[in-house]
């Protein structure tokens, strides 16, 4: 720990400079973690370039969902009710876990049978810090951003990483 007044090299953790007696307490303490005041983290999700959500009804087949995901290079489709309320999600991982590894026929399986009901959602005015936190905890690659019950966009981990690079 170098004394800011006289440049004397002190033992780490020393409270007073051994040479000039300057108060060194707390000077070498590194504050842990990310700055919560970071303006990047406080931005609302509505200001981010969200992806357009792909949506289908629950009676559509898994084959249709797979086709839609392929065409749009997307990782999931959202399932909407007739009233256009978000009721479920069907992801790339579900294709592996619930269809391919079990040998189910995608043509014969309805989305309603294999989707995950009641997906975790984010609100348009949620701050980025909250979105990152949810994605980190839940491990989701895509999270729907809603306004009331209706889906307005998708936040992907790629968008999040791109945002960090641009920051």
């Amino acid at each position: 720990m170098r004394c800011p007044a006289c440049d004397h090299e002190n033992i780490p953790g020393e409270d007073l400079c051994a040479d000039c007696g300057m108060d060194l307490a707390g000077l070498d303490v590194q504050v842990w973690g990310v700055d919560p005041e970071d303006p990047l983290l406080a931005k609302p999700l509505a200001e981010l370039p969200l992806n357009k959500p792909l949506t289908l009804g629950s009676t559509c087949s898994v084959a249709e969902a797979i086709e839609l995901m392929r065409e749009n290079h997307a990782g999931c489709v959202f399932v909407e009710s007739k009233e256009q309320e978000l009721v479920g999600v069907f992801t790339e991982r579900d294709v592996t876990v619930r269809i391919a590894s079990r040998g189910r026929d995608p043509e014969q399986t309805r989305l309603g049978e294999v989707m995950t009901s009641g997906p975790v959602v984010l609100q348009r005015d949620d701050p980025i810090s909250w979105a990152l936190h949810r994605m980190g905890i839940d491990g989701y690659r895509q999270v729907p951003v809603v306004d009331g019950e209706r889906i307005r966009g998708v936040l992907s981990s790629r968008t999040v990483l791109q945002l960090l690079l641009d920051s």
């Binding site: 973690g33 990152l132 936190h133 994605m135 980190g136």
Partner: peptide, 13 residues
Amino acid sequence: SNDLVQYLTDQFP
């Protein structure tokens, strides 16, 4: 990509 998001968010106070 989730490892990265998770690591970065683990650093939040």
